[in-house]
Design a protein around this nucleic acid. Structure first.
Length: 581
RNA sequence: GCACUCGUAGCUCAGCUGGAUAGAGCGCUGCCCUCCGAAGGCAGAGGUCGCGCGUUCGAAUCGCGCCGAGUGCACCA
């Protein structure tokens, strides 16, 4: 049940009637007609802008349309009153029985309450993390991982067919550096002094890789030229790094459907095929780029290159896809990779990048638009940095000082649930502070705790009710007479529950999982407020001792709230708490 | 020099893909514990939505121009 969608349908039906009766002209576009909760509760339960949106195309006054619409809407049993207000809003007051229906719907639909068919099973590819396989994941990757995973879950809940994908950058120079670094650790394992020279990866995490290499190769590679061992050591080290990264992700409860290797694109004709695709479209040419305006790089020289005419699809300049020595630039395999996504049948692509890759957005969008001829939508979400704090003090990261914070460090200290929720309490393109002390704090100032506490409170109420011998199974709660839940605090909570399906669609349309986190905070707040009122007004308490029927009615509402919180936390990848200890 | 992201209450941030008197938390002020969980609760003060034009019945939201912060700007990924 999606109350707002249902009521919008009621409005549109009424408009159709008006067209049929000649009150409105035919051929009107209803796309901008909305039915939404008013900002001010005094304005009623819902408001529609239909009269204002249609006034101009219909050639009549907003008020006249609104009056006529109001008369028809009040015929619906769910509408208690419809009144015209302001510049032409139509405010709807709903029959209180509607909120009982919503409560029951949340209980009977359970974990599926709020699930949407918005996505129509369209296939979506969410690419995220894609950290270079050269070391453990650091905090910067964590936010992207959590964001991507929650977004994927959100889209799934909104009716899309989602694939979580990780692009392994195992084709470039940095994995050669990894191989050389691992080789030094291999020499170390064989009792030689490692030469961790400038430009190699110094991290301790390669020591076990060196030992594993020794276990496999003994000392047979010692003293051999790089050309002999590079490829083998590279494959081995990359595999080890991926094993580690999978472990890091698993610790965060992130599980990818596909790990796609950049290297697999080379030597298989796939890059050539993608470039040919662009070439056939007349978008590839040999040319010379203008030097960048402003400060000119020292070593600037004019050179002819193979270029992609990305400016034809909104980019600022055309982009090189081949170096002057004939090898591909990093952009070429990226184009090919996105081409494979299109060819694999995805109609909607989402890339999650670090904010420092913002300059890459236009060319990637241009590539996808060109390759798909505008039939595939690519949305790129930029993830801003995370600033670490401890006791309110900035937590400086330094590889040398050994205070380099990995994802594993954060999860071990804070836990996956707390880490995930906190990282989602900010919009993806806003910087975020992560203070270990505040995040672990058990007080209402901590949103994670606040939401978990609301869920735990409901669980506590259920336990208490059961102890008193009440039947609080979902079946019993669904069957309860809810007509007594009419206090303003109760209605506020019920309204919030009714908003959940709408919020899911809004969040999914914007690709913004943080909206779920904010909504959960608000609904938790409504539950706490109702609870607190029970302190003074005993008739509002969920458990009404000696009155099973009244208890069931109140608990049904609380339980419905818990269902929404549980579902929402599930989307964020957070386990709801049954009790707080 | 150009592009991208951002600019909302003292602080940290939401704000529904254009709606009514712009919200929350912290902080501040004032009240409140014999009460299902006071690791609190209720109420209040506090804002030219960076600035200026424009589009519109209507702009924090869309467009243009400034100001300010961050990020990125040729064969590195």
């Amino acid at each position: 049940m999606n109350l707002f969608a249902d009521m919008r349908a009621v409005v549109l039906t009424a408009l159709d009637q008006m067209v049929a009766e000649g009150v409105l002209p035919s051929g009107l576009d209803y796309a901008n007609v909305t039915v939404e909760p008013p900002r001010d509760a005094a304005h009623g339960d819902m408001a529609t802008n239909a009269a204002m949106v249609l006034a101009k195309p219909a050639g009549s006054k907003p008020r006249d349309i609104a009056d006529a619409l109001a008369a028809r809407l009040t015929a619906d049993p769910r509408v208690a009153a419809a009144e015209v207000a302001g510049p032409g809003f139509l405010n709807l007051r709903l029959n209180v029985s509607v909120w009982a229906d919503v409560t029951r719907a949340a209980l009977s639909e359970g974990a599926d309450y709020g699930r949407s068919t918005l996505g129509a099973k369209e296939r979506v590819n969410v690419e995220f993390v894609s950290a270079n396989p050269t070391g453990p994941m650091h905090v910067g990757h964590t936010r992207g991982a959590v964001f991507g995973d929650a977004l994927a879950a959100l889209l799934d809940f909104a009716g899309y067919d989602v694939t979580r994908e990780y692009y392994i950058n195992d084709g470039g120079a940095q994995v050669n550096v990894l191989a050389r670094s691992a080789f030094e650790r291999y020499r170390e394992a064989n009792g030689l002094d490692p030469d961790i020279r400038e430009g190699l990866y110094p991290g301790d995490y390669l020591i076990p890789v060196g030992e594993a290499l020794k276990a496999k190769y003994g000392d047979s590679l010692i003293g051999k030229p790089e050309s002999v061992w590079l490829d083998e050591v590279k494959d081995f080290a990359v595999a080890e790094m991926l094993k580690m990264i999978r472990g890091d992700l698993a610790a965060l409860n992130v599980h990818m459907d596909v790990f796609y290797s950049e290297k697999s694109l080379y030597g298989t004709g796939q890059i050539e095929a993608a470039i040919k695709r662009l070439s056939d479209l007349g978008l590839i040419y040999r040319g010379v780029l203008e030097p960048p305006k402003g400060k000119l790089p020292e070593d600037w020289e004019e050179r002819e290159q193979l270029l992609f005419r990305s400016t034809a699809y909104g980019d600022d300049v055309d982009r090189p896809i081949q170096k002057s020595d004939g090898s591909w630039t990093y952009f070429a395999p990226d184009i090919a990779y996105h081409w494979t996504k299109i060819e694999r049948g995805f109609h909607k692509l989402i890339d999650v990048f670090g904010a420092d890759h913002g300059g890459y957005v236009k060319r990637m969008k241009a590539a996808v638009a060109a390759l798909s001829q505008n039939s595939v939508d690519l949305d790129i979400k930029l993830i801003q940095l995370v600033r670490l704090f401890k006791n309110g003090e900035p937590f400086k990261m330094s590889k040398r000082a050994g205070t380099f914070v990995t994802l594993r460090d954060v999860v071990e200290q804070a836990g996956a649930d707390v880490t995930r929720f906190h990282l989602l309490t900010r919009k993806n393109d806003a910087a975020l502070d992560f203070d270990f002390d505040k995040v672990l704090e058990q007080s209402k100032d901590n949103p994670v705790f606040y939401v978990q506490y609301a869920h735990a409170r409901v669980a506590s109420v259920l336990r208490k009710a059961r102890d008193l011998g009440f039947d609080v199974s979902d079946a019993a709660l669904i069957g309860a007479d809810l007509s007594g839940n009419t206090h303003e605090a109760e209605l506020t909570l019920a309204r919030k529950i009714a908003e959940w399906p709408r919020l899911v669609e809004i969040a999914a349309r914007a690709n913004e999982p943080h909206r779920i986190a904010f909504f959960l905070y608000e609904i938790a707040s409504d539950l706490h407020a109702l609870w607190n009122r029970g302190n003074d007004e005993t008739q509002l308490r969920f458990v009404q001792e000696g009155d099973a029927a009244a208890s069931q009615a109140k608990i049904a509402l609380a339980r419905a709230c818990a269902v929404v919180i549980s579902t929402g936390l599930g989307i964020l990848g957070v386990t709801p708490a049954e009790e707080m200890r």
